[in-house]
């Protein structure tokens, strides 16, 4: 460890301080780094040693909390699982997540995303609730496999930063919320598919998607949100043509 070369790398960080700056601008920082150092650690070293005003979100440092998503050399990534050795020799461009308003430096506004997540009934709606004494709602491993990857979403919003249709239409429900929707619609214990599908038949629902597919490539947890959006495009189309045949049973 001790005799390893001390390497340096230049980071261009997009800064925006709402009280001082009219608009965002890049500021250059040079950090010394070691083989195993992540972008997040570099940002922390800048904050500790060079400029305490640099703002960014982080929490777990192990790709599970979804807080440190940012654009690294133009690609949406988690700063904690992106390593400087892979970005050398630099300079590396670091910017807040694409397609989101910037609150401050690398921190973006998440309010709309949270609203979308809340809107799709993100909980199991059983056909009939039963008392606790009646026991669990059972599920086979195969039934679980049908939705399991969609439950791995960590709400990091990298997929939204990768989606040009979300960039063009901020009201598009987007890949992340659709993955959560499919997590419940694909669950054998759930009976809320109809209600959730009714939310996404519109222009701002699945029909804004043009199957670019980069959301799934950006996903650090292999959730495959493109699959969630596009299988529900198929579902929405079926519903469009066959809705006359279905029994209306909501009051």
């Amino acid at each position: 460890m001790a005799d390893r070369d001390r390497l340096t790398i230049e980071l261009w960080i997009l800064r925006y301080r709402p009280a001082q700056d009219e608009e965002p601008h890049f500021v250059s920082y040079t950090v010394t780094y070691t083989e195993e150092m992540s972008v997040l650690e570099a940002l922390q070293s800048i904050k500790d040693e060079q400029d305490g005003s640099l703002s960014f979100r982080w929490s777990c440092r192990m790709a599970i909390c979804g807080s440190c998503g940012m654009m690294i050399d133009g690609t949406p990534k988690l700063a904690c699982s992106t390593f400087l050795r892979d970005l050398a020799p630099g300079p590396v461009k670091i910017a807040p997540l694409e397609n989101f308003p910037i609150e401050r430096d690398l921190v973006v506004t998440v309010a709309d995303f949270v609203k979308k997540i809340e809107s799709i009934y993100p909980f199991i709606m059983p056909k009939e609730t039963k008392p606790v004494e009646a026991g669990e709602y059972l599920q086979t491993p195969a039934q679980m496999a049908a939705y399991e990857p969609f439950s791995d979403c960590i709400n990091c919003m990298l997929c939204y930063a990768a989606c040009p249709q979300f960039g063009a239409n901020p009201d598009f429900i987007g890949p992340g919320a659709m993955a959560l929707l499919q997590r419940y619609n694909g669950d054998s214990r759930d009976a809320g598919s109809r209600e959730r599908l009714d939310l996404i038949h519109g222009e701002d629902g699945v029909w804004s998607c043009t199957a670019v597919g980069l959301c799934s490539e950006a996903c650090p947890k292999l959730v495959d949100p493109a699959n969630a959006v596009n299988q529900n495009k198929t579902n929405s189309a079926f519903d469009f043509f066959l809705r006359g045949l279905r029994k209306e049973n909501h009051s």
Partner: peptide, 14 residues
């Protein structure tokens, strides 16, 4: 209220 449907599915099917 559920959002308005689009006629996109017609073109999408073709």
């Amino acid at each position: 209220r559920p959002p308005k449907r689009t006629i996109a599915p017609i073109f999408w099917l073709l």
